[in-house]
């Protein structure tokens, strides 16, 4: 992330849900995202109760679970991806109960072994993260979220525990919501920069190249999730077209971000 900033390049993070539409599509889709211009790939761990996700990613998780996707399958996709690409960072995104059942130590060992670089746990606040951070230390980062409702004091305490980058949730709502406000992002990212030198990326509600361009102006990069998942869902019944579609889509986002 620091290298990207040094090179003056805005980071483009692309999210897909593991096992959606099928497990066979996951690695080809990840590679297509990278070919199109993604700097990081964020891979969703399907969870039965995704309380912070909007309808698009909820539906993707339901499809994945209906396909019988297990946590071990998520790690297997990371390993397979690593056979082709050992440079692009991979971040897993999910919910804490995936960790709870096996425990922080086992979970951390398993994701590090698979080649994961970072972790976003939507419902793990920084003050509860000590055990997991300890077991991941030096091998993978937990990415913390900052939001429009985080107070300055809260931002400072989040920043103190953060590594890698800060993920700014650019709206009050769930993933894929449609009411992002550029001015609010600008002001809040400025507040965050007041408490940390870490790169700040914005996500939630970045639905197309235009949004990426305008948000990218004030951030070190953007995270695009629901729009990508939705594009994949629109190709229902023609999964063979997914890689090409994603590569084109990411190419558009990449160009927009490079212009911002």
């Amino acid at each position: 992330m620091t290298e990207l900033r040094g090179a003056g390049r805005k980071a483009l993070v692309a999210y897909i849900m593991t096992g959606d539409p099928t497990l066979e599509q996951t690695v080809p889709a990840m590679r297509a995202l990278v070919r199109g211009g993604a700097d990081l790939v964020e891979l969703g761990i399907p969870f039965s109760d995704p309380e912070a996700d909007g309808p698009i990613i909820q539906a993707a998780a339901e499809r994945s679970l209906a396909n019988g996707v297990r946590f071990e399958d998520v790690l297997a996709q990371v390993r397979t991806f690593r056979e082709f690409d050992d440079a692009t960072p991979i971040i897993l995104m999910g919910y804490l109960n995936t960790v709870e059942r096996m425990g922080s130590e086992v979970f951390a060992a398993r994701i590090i072994d698979a080649g994961v670089d970072g972790l976003i746990m939507v419902n793990l606040p920084p003050e509860e993260s000590a055990a997991l951070t300890e077991h991941l230390r030096g091998c993978a980062d937990i990415v913390f979220l900052a939001t429009p409702t985080s107070t300055d004091e809260r931002l400072a305490s989040i920043a103190e525990l953060a590594n890698g980058f800060l993920y700014y949730v650019s709206l009050k709502g769930t993933t894929g919501a449609g009411h992002i406000e550029v001015d609010s992002v600008r002001d809040n990212v400025a507040r965050i920069r007041g408490v940390t030198d870490l790169p700040v990326l914005a996500g939630f509600g970045i639905k197309d190249a235009d949004t990426a361009r305008s948000i990218g102006r004030y951030t070190d990069g953007v995270v695009v999730g629901s729009a990508i998942v939705n594009a994949m869902a629109e190709l229902e019944g023609q999964p063979e077209r997914i890689p090409e579609r994603l590569q084109t889509m990411l190419g558009d986002l990449r160009r927009a971000l490079d212009e911002s």
């Binding site: 309380e51 912070a52 606040p125 900052a146 939001t147 409702t149 985080s150 809260r154 949730v169």
Partner: peptide
């Protein structure tokens, strides 16, 4: 505890 999305912490 309080295991929620960050947006809700302030509330």
């Amino acid at each position: 505890g309080r295991f929620v999305a960050e947006t809700l912490v302030h509330a």
